[in-house]
């Protein structure tokens, strides 16, 4: 129990208040994140509404297979994260470390596939601001799709990188036995963050990859 007492910050009366505050804080932060991505989604909705044909044509250049695989990878990493949180709740140290490492690995796989896709776009001269070349009509409108693609997935990827850093911090803490059945909220709230990043992708995937397949 002494270990748990050390985990209590001075401003709180007990661990329950501390856990409650931290969980609420993370949810409030996620509300901020919803609106942060929300600005991008609004831009997407406006331009999609304005240039439906260009978006359909442009999205043919998205790699649906890579996108689908990445969706599966990210959902699997979310499952691993959920299992990590459950292990923390049960106070199981070794499974906790294992599931955290699996979450990180799958996150890294996602980023790897993403980087490979970016590379392909670069080779195909589809990176706005770097080497965008479009011979067909609606050049500017198609460029808008790719611009939004890079900004939205780039912001998402940045969140993934931050998430992997946070997970590293958890693994180091777990190896030193910092977490227990009474004190596991760091795992829980970083888990919330990780699931949120997954959620963003769940919407990005159909919006960016699947809109022009049948045209």
């Amino acid at each position: 129990m002494s270990e748990s007492t050390n985990a209590l910050a001075h401003q709180f009366d007990d661990l329950e208040q501390q856990a409650r505050s931290n969980t609420l804080g993370m949810w409030a932060f996620l509300a901020t994140e919803v609106l942060f991505f929300g600005g991008l989604f609004t831009a997407y909705v406006v331009y999609r509404h304005a240039f439906p044909e260009a978006f359909a044509v442009g999205s043919k250049h998205m790699d649906v297979v890579a996108g689908t695989v990445n969706t599966a990878v990210l959902i699997a990493s979310s499952l691993m994260m959920a299992l990590a949180v459950q292990s923390a709740q049960l106070g199981l140290r070794r499974p906790l470390i294992m599931f955290l490492l699996l979450t990180m690995t799958l996150g890294a796989v996602f980023l790897g596939i993403k980087a490979w896709e970016y590379h392909h776009k670069y080779v195909e001269n589809l990176v706005p601001g770097v080497n965008f070349v479009w011979e067909g009509p609606l050049r500017n409108q198609v460029q808008m799709l790719f611009l939004l693609y890079f900004i939205m997935t780039g912001t998402h990827a940045l969140h993934m990188v931050i998430g992997i850093c946070l997970l590293t911090y958890l693994v180091l803490g777990a190896r030193r036995g910092r977490f227990s059945r009474e004190y596991f909220f760091p795992v829980e709230i970083i888990g919330l963050y990780w699931h949120f990043v997954d959620l963003v992708w769940i919407f990005l995937f159909p919006l960016l990859y699947l809109i022009g397949l049948h045209l």
Partner: peptide, 16 residues
């Protein structure tokens, strides 16, 4: 990056 999210000459809308 000299791209046009809001630039009307590149298809964007400054009102957005």
């Amino acid at each position: 990056w000299r791209v046009g999210i809001f630039d009307p000459s590149l298809g964007g809308d400054p009102i957005l």
